[in-house]
Design a protein around this nucleic acid. Structure first.
Length: 352
DNA sequence: AATGCTTGCAACCGCAACGTG
DNA sequence: CCACGTTGCGGTTGCAAGCAT
């Protein structure tokens, strides 16, 4: 037995909104607000639309101060930074970009920005093995996405070369220098594997392996690492056997207990601060609230600072963008979560 | 000019979280 | 505490426009 539909699908219109519908919705909300009830709104406004559809239309298109059009380099960097930190939490990312909607950012990422980053991947293809003992699998691709040739995760890791630290000097040059011509694609823009870009963003830095304990636990990261195939034992547990010594030959060791609710509730603490105090980019050392223990980005200014676009420096290459050496300090004794996530920024920063 | 392919984006869908009685 | 309705979110899809052949 399925859940009750949110509206009578037989009597609601679907598909693109007409200018008349837009005008009706906008006029109604301008006059009366949403009334705190989107389900009832279309009826009151005289629209033959589902409440969810009205809400979406308003939020993504009709509400004031929506910004459409090209994303700036700064916006690119912010998106990349936040994506590397928190993953596909588009609403959170959108909250850091004035006038952008989560849908906009999601589309932009999926169609353009990810390609820029993927363009970096061929640099790793011919490299030597780095995670030979670490089986990885890609998530299933939707039909929409299956047609594209992708770099598989295993080859990415298996072909690691420490020299990849020097691939690019900074994120700015990365974002500017890559073109779609470099991208190993075949037929569909939809087909690039999320796995691969995530691998890129999460690529491992051996210099950091010794520093990952007692850092700052990022539940989203833990969750996502499993989503992207690091968890292989089916019951939600993963234990990657590897050495964390001698320069590091493994990136993670963790146990996962399917505690998604807890993870979700910690979202509220996300974006308040993040980083690795051992790498000297935190502005203070009081940011770890034992109650919160979140993956925390303090604010946009900090993000900008971390990625080298603060007011004091327009040269992002001069700044160590070691912003994702998070975060591994799960105080639950039943779990250990050691994940390396700063490779991306180290990589584009030349490994400093 | 016609056709097929690719791209970009608006919109839909389903699920989880949240709020309320 | 529970049930149920609503909201918010992220993944996915459909389609129009642009591009290549």
């Amino acid at each position: 037995m399925g859940r009750a539909p949110c509206c009578d699908k037989a009597s609601v219109k679907k598909g693109p909104w007409s200018p008349e519908e837009d005008a009706k919705l906008k006029e109604f909300i301008d006059k009366h607000g949403t009334g705190g009830n989107w389900i009832a709104l279309p009826h009151k406004a005289g629209l033959k639309r589902c409440g969810k559809s009205c809400r979406l239309r308003w939020l993504n298109y009709l509400r004031p101060n929506i910004k459409h059009g090209e994303f700036s380099e700064e916006e690119d960097r912010i998106i990349c930074t936040l994506y590397a930190s928190i993953g596909s939490r588009w609403s959170i990312i959108a909250s850091h970009l004035q006038g952008r909607t989560d849908n906009d950012i999601k589309n932009y990422w999926n169609t353009k920005l990810r390609k820029k980053l993927l363009a970096l991947l061929p640099s790793f293809q011919k490299k030597q093995s780095f995670f030979p003992s670490m089986p990885l699998q890609s998530p299933p691709l939707s039909d929409h996405h299956k047609s594209e040739t992708i770099l598989n995760t295993s080859s990415f890791y298996n072909n690691y070369n420490p020299n990849f630290m020097n691939v690019s000097n900074n994120i700015n040059s990365l974002l500017l220098s890559t073109t779609t011509n470099n991208i190993p694609t075949t037929s569909s823009n939809h087909a690039q594997s999320h796995t691969n870009i995530t691998d890129l963003l999460y690529s491992y830095n051996p210099n950091n392996i010794m520093n990952v304990s007692n850092k700052y636990y990022c539940p989203e990261v833990k969750e996502r690492m499993l989503m992207f195939g690091y968890g292989g034992s089916g019951g939600g547990e993963l234990s990657t056997t590897c050495s964390s010594e001698g320069g590091g030959s493994c990136m993670s060791q963790m146990t996962y207990n399917n505690d998604h609710h807890r993870i979700k509730q910690e979202d509220q603490f996300a974006l308040q601060g993040f980083g690795d105090q051992n790498h000297g980019f935190m502005t203070d050392h009081t940011y770890v609230d034992q109650k919160q223990k979140g993956c925390l980005i303090k604010n946009l200014d900090e993000v900008k600072q971390l990625i080298g676009i603060n007011s004091s420096s327009s040269n992002s290459s001069s700044i160590n963008v070691d912003i994702n050496s998070y975060l591994m300090n799960d105080h639950d004794e039943n779990k250990t979560t050691h994940i390396i996530t700063d490779g991306f920024y180290r990589m584009i920063d030349g490994g400093n």
